[in-house]
Nucleic acid binder design. Structure first.
Lengths: 195, 195
DNA sequence: TATACCATGTAATAAGTTACATGATTTG
DNA sequence: CAAATCATGTAACTTATTACATGGTATA
């Protein structure tokens, strides 16, 4: 259900075609709420059916068209209403920690490999989030820049600060996961010293 | 797919009936990989069909029976094999951070409420994980205690240490989330000072 | 004119959620 | 003997994943 609000959030910056939106999604809000194209397109259609978006055919090339989506007033209301609703936390479901809890069943080198991959995974995420954060801080992030131009109802500093705050949270999380995995590597060295 | 390995992990401590297993699940591995009873019972059946578990009818009361599940050799092999497989990280999908990224659309007090609830949520989780951790450290956790009795192939210290390591990771995470939300509250006070 | 990429999906499957159902047994 | 809890689910639904499909347009 959050997907539709992620899409709505993105479209409040500017109307977009499905394709542009999908691309923009993957380099912005998709870092917070992932979804594949195959989930995005049908959801857009549903949102039109529910009155949250308006769709228009715009010409593409000589004889073809593409669909552009614009948030309706009802869509804006729905987005605001969503903001008031309590956050639904997903239950814990963590593949890395499930594995680590039973590392006694793994070869120590396999356990090490998992932890190294954990570090690599979060180093990659960290780099992605960091580059988002930089682009947000300098206001050079294209979607944010567009949003700052078109959005007259909100304090631009607040718009930026909330996104900075969000991505800083992810960065801290990545740091935490990396530190945790390093601890695990130390533990493995203690339990199974290498020569 | 991880659910079956969470169940397998639990059943390596001792054979259990479906009901006992479901109860034990919720106070142990369910803290790492949540699943409702309605997902557990059918999965157990499937695991029997796949040869990972053996089921036996044991008497219950005068004229009734219940089903007890035991890990087969094939089940142990499957569990070990799973340990070698790469961890599949779920894509980011974070309802709290999705919300916070667009807090400019929320009333400042609503945003504050969300952050306070975030703190409350992770304080609760922290307490749960902390009590798990204490029970593990003192080896008084009933399932762990049983595991330490029955499991002769693994170093008991390692069995304990890996679980400690896992839950310490969760505790750090909870601390991080709480600190993040407090930052958010500071930010809100900066942007929207209260009298 | 081939290749990249624009544009929009569908189909099949898997996984997870919510709500409900039902009867048996133990215990106070 | 009523209440708690033991025991085991099913049904309906929603969400998400994976893989594939198809044709058009711009560009080198």
């Amino acid at each position: 259900m959050s997907l539709r609000y992620a899409l709505l959030a993105l479209l409040t910056a500017q109307p977009m075609t499905g394709y542009d939106l999908a691309k923009a999604f993957h380099v912005s809000v998709g870092h917070v709420w992932h979804a594949p194209d195959s989930q995005i397109y049908p959801e857009l259609k549903r949102m039109v059916a529910d009155g949250l978006l308006r769709d228009e055919s715009v010409p593409w090339g000589a004889s073809s068209t593409k669909t552009q989506y614009t948030v309706t007033d009802e869509g804006v209301d729905a987005f605001r209403a969503w903001m008031d609703e309590p956050i639904e936390y997903a239950r814990e479901r963590d593949p890395a920690h499930l594995r680590s809890a039973y590392f006694e069943w793994a070869d120590p080198d396999v356990a090490r490999r998992h932890l190294h991959e954990h570090i690599a995974h979060y180093e990659l995420r960290r780099a992605q989030w960091q580059s988002q954060l930089n682009a947000i801080r300098t206001r050079s992030h294209p979607i944010l820049a567009r949003r700052l131009e078109t959005d007259t109802r909100h304090d631009p500093d607040a718009v930026v600060e909330f996104k900075v705050f969000t991505y800083e949270g992810f960065l801290d999380r990545a740091e935490g996961e990396i530190a945790w995995a390093r601890h695990g590597l130390d533990l493995l060295d203690r339990l199974h010293p290498r020569d």
